[in-house]
Structures are given as structure tokens and as C-alpha cells.
Design a protein around this nucleic acid. Structure first.
Lengths: 138, 138
DNA sequence: CTAAAATCGCAACACTATTGCAAACTGAAA
DNA sequence: TTTCAGTTTGCAATAGTGTTGCGATTTTAG
């Protein structure tokens, strides 16, 4: 497990440090998205808030995690699939926010639908967020 | 125009005050969504930040405006169509954020697609946000 | 092992959002 | 038009979130 995490970091040209291992480990062991606050709370040892921000930012830049837009005003992050690479995310799946347990899930098998835009509009990216009750809370 | 704004307020059982008239007027005259900051900057006379927050909150509760989720971490608001009523929003349209001019538009004619969710998941609400270049910037 | 480069933690700061309360205003009735 | 209860406003204080600069520490590569 520790090796696995370190491999990911090295593959992405990030130096292997305690905070990065810990935070990446959290994402791998947690099934669902994490907000900044979740990470600060669950990291066990206390990392500085700034370190967490910078670590998340580095992970996003390297294509290890991606951000998830939510209706409330909080940014969440989740692991990317292998198809993401540095500077080039391709998270074409939709996201699901459970209004019962509060978890956010990537529904990797459900691709974002094609949206027909008005004349003159072009979209680079389409985000779909569904909100309701997840499979576990049903 | 002034009468029009006052009518909307009265219809929604909100007392008619200077800040509410001004802020609602901004939404009506502005084609696109407004963030809290836009409102504070454009209100002309200066209203207290708190007043703006409370006014927006009141409008959302009454179904006059709705919030728009965005990928970055900012809340935007836009006028609701008549089908919205107190405590019951029905904004089934999608939203478009222009990465050039930064404006957010409600594409009222484009309804959110049906999403087929995994077994056990049920969605109350589906938000679609497209990002790209809008018709004016093309 | 060593030096250069990258990262970390602290302090400070900026922006966003919320709450309590007294003063001012609004709406409706006299 | 005057009055007054209820609503709304602005101020002050507070909390949360995110960013930047910088010296100290750690990591990497030679």
C-alpha cells in the first residue's frame, strides 16, 4: 500500500513526502469524494492548512485528482481514473451527491450526455451533478 | 419599470424597500447571472454587505431567483421563470459559463437530460453546467 | 555525503459569510 | 395623516475559507 502510493507520486514527478503520502492514501482508501475539511480532520497527524491546499492543488495539476462542483459552495476532490494525465483531465463521468449521508460519488460508468447548445455556443466541458439518495442509504 | 419591480415584491409578500427594488432591478436589467460581488459593486448606492446577503436569501426563498452551481467556488444567482414559487424551485434548464467574458447564462430552452442512474440511486435534482464560449464572444 | 531544488509550517492577510442588536423604515389600521 | 407593531437595515463582531511570502526543513540527484 505504501509502495503503491509512492509509485503514484513518483510517476507524477512529485517528491515523496509525509503529507502527500497521507493525503493520497486517504483518497485511495475512501470511497467517495473528499472536501478540504474532511482531509484536515482525517489526516491523523496535523498538517498545516496551507500544506493541504498546496497538496491538493499539486494533485489536481498532475491529474491525480479532480474537483467536483457542488450546489452548495464547497469544493470536493476525487481520484481520477488513469485516463487523466498532467494538465489534461478527462472526467466525463457524472457526480452524485447523497442528500442523506452527504457523500459525493463519481459514477464512473455514466458518461455526461451530449448537450445541444444554442447556435454560437461551444462547450469545452460539461459537468453534471445529480442530487438524491445513494445506493447505500436507500 | 419601478412598478414592475414593486409588483414582483408584493406578489411574493416582501415589503418594498430600497435595497430590494435596486437589487431586483439589477437582475431584471442584467442578462445573465450575478454573483454577490457583482451586486455589491453595481448597486450604485452602497448597501451593507449583510443586507445584500439577506436580500438574496429572501429572494431565493420566495422563488424569485435561484442559485447556480459553478466549478469554481462562487455562488451565482439568476432570475427564476414564473414556474418557480415559494419554497419550490423548478429550474430544469442548464447553465452556461463563458470562459471568455465570465458571464453565466441560463439556457432556458435546454432542459436537463434524463440521466440513467445505477440501481438503487434516485435523484431529486440534476444540475448541468456547461463551460465554453458563449454566443456573444464567439 | 553534499548541494540544489522542492516542500513545509508559520504568520499575515484578504475575502466570504453569518449573527445579534439597536435604529430606521414599511404597511396597515385608526 | 398619524400611529404603531412588525420588518428590515446597518453596524460591530465573529467565524470560515483560501492565498501569499519567507525562512527552515526535507527530498532528490549527483
Amino acid at each position: 500500500m505504501d509502495n503503491y502510493v509512492e509509485d503514484i507520486l513518483r510517476r507524477n514527478h512529485l517528491s515523496v513526502t509525509g503529507s502527500r503520502k497521507k493525503i493520497l492514501g486517504l483518497f485511495i482508501s475512501h470511497n467517495g469524494a473528499l472536501a478540504h475539511g474532511d482531509i484536515e480532520r482525517n489526516a491523523g497527524e496535523k498538517f498545516d492548512r496551507v500544506t493541504v491546499y498546496r497538496t491538493l492543488q499539486a494533485f489536481v495539476e498532475k491529474g491525480i485528482i479532480h474537483t467536483i462542483p457542488t450546489a452548495d459552495n464547497s469544493v470536493r476532490y476525487a481520484l481520477c481514473k488513469d485516463s487523466c494525465s498532467e494538465g489534461h483531465h478527462r472526467d466525463h463521468h457524472i457526480h452524485f451527491v447523497c442528500s442523506n449521508c452527504g457523500n459525493t460519488y463519481c459514477l464512473d460508468d455514466i458518461v455526461t450526455p451530449d448537450i445541444r447548445l444554442p447556435r454560437g455556443y461551444t462547450a469545452d466541458r460539461v459537468e453534471v451533478v445529480a442530487e438524491g439518495i445513494c445506493g447505500h442509504c436507500q
